[in-house]
Design a protein around this nucleic acid. Structure first.
Length: 427
DNA sequence: TGAAATGTTGGGGCG
DNA sequence: ACGCCCCAACATTTC
């Protein structure tokens, strides 16, 4: 009788709530991963994130081998795989950590139903976050839609709980199995040149001082690891110093946007604030193409987009600049930019990506006001004075010979203010 | 976690 | 000493 622990975006065997609980209760625990066709069919075969998942799973399989176990790995539609396993194996129970995205919520609901019909126990756990969507709410039970009061409540709640990484001692309860681990080509995965960097916590100490300066690379490269769960949020918090309030605040932003998406799933395809629905985007495809390639004639915008295209990363401040430029200067619907970032970012997460894009466009909850327009030239003066970041990504950058901006700042700014105002006046 | 436009202040040049 | 102008520096308002 097998007890399955189904990994999804919690790709680690340390401090994994579902695995921990299964190991505590049962002595035949089998870890499983399913490459989901619903997701993979939408991605190129050489997607770097799928490669990262594969590489991580291979590592997990080797860890499991040390405990005389192995990772079961499939590619297919999860509901079909589980139906098959329920028929072919003696399944005693299923355990997985909750995932709050709309697609994942629906998928998991269906799997829980399937197990219920088969009268087999299935358990889901909180693991991805410190607080789930209904654990940090206003007095009247409604969700917060403004960050600062949400954060205050989050911190109040956090002060009264104990949250430390779980320590596992019962790996002996892993199922004895020696299945061969599938090759990439057996799963239809092609290798990628773009790699996820290992995270480094050295940078966290002066994160609040350096985070705004893209050339200092004062970033932790933690985000893809949090996204795929190669490190848990509890482990990250345990590594922080007490004074890392800014970094902790970023982790709270993560949970803020997760609960926003869970409470307001319509934002996946709609403005959070519908009064912006009447803003008439220009949606010029040539402009969009130039933005994607990093050929806008604004060096800081181009550098950011080239970093993204070449590495799958983009410095946070530059994300705000490039996103703001697409929405405000080019007047292109934030959904276009969101979709592009979704393709390219190694740390892509629906809730954070959507939340931050809507912030940039001014359409989101607690967002930047529409008239707050970044001046790409001023931003260089403030945050990349030495042009170090720009020169890293725009080779041989030379102010005098650099291509002209695709749109002049003053003109674009005034056009943006006019178009937004006209849109809002239609309400 | 904005930037531009507009308003205010005060020092210096000058008649 | 005074009034006037200019303008930089800073503050406030506006988008």
């Amino acid at each position: 009788m097998i007890n399955y622990v189904w990994l999804r975006r919690d790709l680690r065997i340390e401090d994994n709530t579902a695995l921990h609980n299964a190991l505590e209760k049962y002595n035949k625990v089998q870890v499983i991963f399913i490459f989901d066709d619903h997701i993979l069919e939408e991605l190129p075969k050489d997607d770097p994130r799928v490669n990262f998942i594969y590489d991580t799973l291979e590592k997990i399989n080797r860890q499991l081998n040390k405990h005389n176990s192995s990772l079961t790995c499939f590619r297919g539609k999860p509901e079909a795989i589980w139906e098959m396993l329920l028929k072919e194996k003696k399944v005693n129970s299923l355990h997985f950590n909750r995932d709050y995205e709309p697609y994942a919520t629906l998928r998991d609901e269906n799997i829980l139903q399937l197990f219920k019909r088969n009268k087999i126990a299935a358990f889901s756990y909180k693991d991805q976050v410190i607080f789930e969507k209904d654990e940090v709410v206003k007095k009247d039970g409604l969700p917060y839609t403004v960050y600062t009061p949400y954060k205050n409540k989050w911190l109040t709640n956090y002060a009264s709980i104990i949250s430390t990484p779980l320590v596992d001692s019962k790996f002996k309860n892993l199922n004895n199995s020696q299945q061969p681990f599938p090759l990439k080509k057996e799963l239809g995965i092609h290798p990628s040149l773009i790699k996820v960097k290992p995270f480094s916590l050295d940078q966290l100490d002066n994160y609040s001082k350096t985070r705004d300066f893209p050339s200092l690379d004062g970033t932790s490269y933690l985000s893809p690891h949090l996204r795929f769960g190669t490190i848990s949020v509890r482990q990250v918090i345990a590594l922080l110093n007490k004074e890392d309030q800014i970094f902790l605040s970023e982790l709270i932003w993560r949970e803020f946007f997760m609960q926003i998406l869970a409470h307001f799933p319509k934002i996946q395809t709609n403005n959070f604030k519908s009064k912006y629905d009447t803003v008439k985007w220009r949606n010029n495809e040539e402009d969009f193409e130039k933005w994607c390639k990093g050929e806008t004639g604004y060096p800081i915008v181009d550098a950011g987009m080239r970093q993204l295209n070449e590495t799958g990363y983009m410095h946070n401040r530059v994300r705000m600049i490039t996103a703001g430029f697409l929405c405000k200067h080019l007047l292109i619907d934030w959904k276009w930019g969101e979709a592009y970032f979704a393709q390219k970012l190694l740390d892509y997460d629906l809730s954070a990506n959507n939340g931050n894009w809507q912030w940039s466009a001014g359409t989101g909850c607690d967002s930047a006001p529409y008239f707050r327009i970044f001046n790409p030239t001023e931003q260089i003066k403030k945050f990349d004075k030495e042009l170090k970041y720009i020169r890293t990504w725009v080779k041989d950058f030379d102010e005098l010979t650099y291509p002209a901006p695709i749109v002049e700042h003053k003109f674009a700014r005034e056009r943006c203010l006019r178009i937004y105002k006209e849109g809002l006046s239609k309400n």
